[in-house]
Design a protein around this nucleic acid. Structure first.
Lengths: 328, 328
DNA sequence: ATTGAAAATGAAATCGGTTTCATTTCAACC
DNA sequence: GGTTGAAATGAAACCGATTTCATTTTCAAT
């Protein structure tokens, strides 16, 4: 059912139908006739044709490193919720942690003239920044801070510092860390820096901190903990860059005969829901992923509305909230 | 940069460019000229125009009840992985557990002439079935079994029965169940039926099973457990329709002074990763969500390829795998 | 009754590709 | 040399909407 057919059926011109749908001036009788014809036929305008003619869509690209991760799903849930409220649809692309793909999906979004994109980035190098600047569609980056790019990010540094303070306050002095890759400025570098800052405050040598890099999963955390135990046998406190790493690390500690929380203080970041169900309950920091998804969506929608003058770069840092539990 | 401009720049006709891109017969010199022009300009054909003319896309709709759930994210991860391998992109719609929206998103997919859709359905009533039959784009339903519709579903009945057998084998006789809504044939009805079947085998009266309905989250499980404790104070075994409900239920048990696993056997379904980290480790059944996502994607892609004759209805039941741990 | 401005209207152009169709080119074969 | 069939080619039609533009209608103001 095309618009032309519908128009013939209603005895009006296609232009009249278009005006009915998009609000041009149209007599009351014609409106009524068209309304009835649409109701009878269930006509719906063709998206491709609309897209071609108007050069706009209600599609927003969401680019994430993976789907089966709690932080990602909280973020996408928040963004999707907010976007669908204003009638936008989400197109999701998964990069499998490959920064190259982030870029290629981004240009795909532009090529397909999507209305905008939300990028959950795992890195923030110069290439990303310049690439983003050149893009013609509005983009909001979430999870990383980049210069000259609108982004929503977390206070990774502050959260890691405060968790470390907690561990130090417990009297621990032989700290270690399980970190994310240093290619990741937010989850990797900033959280490391937070730990070191807290150590420095406490008069400890931050240079002496043993750090092992882990992938973003339980197995990675477990393996990293094994390496740490070999490398720094007497350690009594571990900060893990994510909760999942912490769960893996706790497992390793237990099989090494150590009791997490009693023998070794351990904390994670992210406030995974499982944290309050494992034993000991995991001390962690809530990072407002869902909120950041929502905020990113709202910011993006604002950008999509403006469109006129070069819209301003807007950066928002979301705070965190410490969840002190039994593992520290 | 349009195709016409590109053609002029290369000194050929637009048709030649189109043939270059889509493989029509074209002399070697023209191919070379066009190749260079494209390389120089970075030209990419406009999706909307292609879509309008060819009436096809590489977009697949994925309709899910929510995003921040482990089963959903495992499923979508599997599907997205498989789909992107063949160059398809995912468009995600969230229904918030509203069956109406499942239908409306489905017709949206059709209206936008997506290549196909994967529906993770929370119900399977007659309306859904007839609606799906009438749809002109290929659809694969996952998680529910429907007549005359291609679907991938789990052996909910078998898994629930076998878990219940485990609880019975532990010597428990005063069973109860925390169930999903009975509108949900798979997670609700089939799992209930599985429990009852195991009871019957063991010579117990399945009609006497106290059942409380819970939402698909931890809080729901906790509340349902409270109701069960009031209603059947002496219970010594609980089967929960999902792991998350089980985590909530364990919490309630503990605050009632009961030790899960010792005083009350408890099991869930879904094999959430957290199951092996809570204490006691949760006995559960692995349901192959990621595999079902992959299988659904593959089946859908096959359907999209055929397209010719009315493609056959294909139904696959995925098995389960019991994870016996400490909570039973 | 007349005038002018605003509202209503449909024909036709347009968006950027793909595909048909009629024509030309070319090599191969008798 | 003439015939033939396949490959190569570009003009033009087409996909289904929106929007411009020129024209007609309507209606209030004079």
């Amino acid at each position: 059912m095309t618009m032309k057919e519908l128009a013939k059926l209603a005895g009006v011109s296609p232009a009249a139908v278009s005006r009915y749908l998009n609000g041009g001036s149209l007599s009351a009788e014609k409106q009524e006739v068209i309304r009835r014809a649409i109701e009878k036929t269930g006509y719906q305008p063709d998206l491709a044709a609309q897209m071609l003619r108007t050069r706009t869509t209600d599609l927003v690209g969401i680019i994430v490193p993976k789907l089966d991760s709690e932080s990602v799903s909280r973020l996408t849930a928040g963004a999707a919720e907010e976007l669908s409220q204003e009638g936008y649809l989400c197109q999701i692309a998964v990069t499998q942690n490959d920064p190259e793909r982030e870029l290629s999906y981004l240009s795909l979004c532009q090529n397909r003239s999507l209305a905008g994109a939300i990028l959950m980035s795992t890195t923030a190098d110069a290439r990303h920044e310049s690439f983003l600047k050149k893009l013609s569609i509005p983009v909001v980056v979430v999870g990383q801070r980049m210069k000259n790019v609108s982004c929503i990010y977390h206070d990774d540094f502050g959260a890691a510092r405060e968790l470390t303070r907690l561990i130090l306050a417990r009297g621990r002095t032989r700290l270690a860390m399980i970190s994310a890759t240093e290619q990741d400025p937010a989850a990797g570098l900033a959280r490391q820096a937070g730990v070191r800052a807290a150590m420095e405050e406490a008069g400890l040598d931050p240079g002496a901190l043993p750090v092992e890099i882990s992938s973003f999963d339980i197995a990675g955390g477990a393996a990293a903990m094994e390496r740490l135990l070999r490398r720094a046998p007497g350690l009594d406190g571990v900060l893990c860059a994510t909760d999942r790493m912490a769960f893996g690390a706790m497992e390793t500690l237990r099989s090494a005969g150590l009791v997490p929380g009693r023998d070794v203080s351990i904390a994670g970041l992210g406030d995974s829901w499982a944290g309050r169900h494992v034993v000991p309950h995991l001390t962690t920091a809530h990072l407002y992923y869902k909120t950041s998804g929502r905020a990113a969506a709202r910011l993006l929608m604002e950008k999509m509305r403006i469109r006129k003058q070069d819209d301003p770069v807007r950066q928002t840092m979301l705070s965190y909230s410490i969840c002190p539990r039994d593992s520290v």
